[in-house]
């Protein structure tokens, strides 16, 4: 994850997302900021929800459904999850 944009994402959240995501990654794609869930990782809607559940458990957050359509890459998810963590845990 080199040359990351300064998007205000928390390094802890980034590490947690990557850790959980790696357990769901059935491809040999190396996870990067710009890795796309559907095109690169072949995530279908069932796998998305399973992954979200695992991420919610890991970060103790609740991810609302309406954030999903605007998230296409790992980096976007890290930013969104960071915001949720800040909202829910201060």
């Amino acid at each position: 994850m080199s040359a990351e944009p300064s998007d205000g994402a928390s390094p802890d959240v980034r590490a947690a997302v990557l850790e959980v995501l790696q357990t769901f990654n059935k491809t040999d794609v190396i996870l990067k900021h710009g890795t796309r869930f559907t095109e690169d990782l072949n995530f279908d809607s069932l796998l998305v929800m399973e992954f979200i559940a695992a991420l919610e458990d890991r970060l103790d957050i609740s991810v609302p459904l309406n954030v999903l359509p605007d998230i296409e890459t790992v980096g976007q998810l890290v930013v969104a999850a960071t915001e949720i963590v800040r909202e829910e845990h201060g």
């Binding site: 869930f37 559907t38 999903l68 359509p69 605007d70 296409e72």
Partner: peptide, 12 residues
Amino acid sequence: PTPVAFGRRDAY
């Protein structure tokens, strides 16, 4: 329907 997947905003 409600959206259920990552991305695909335009399709939804």
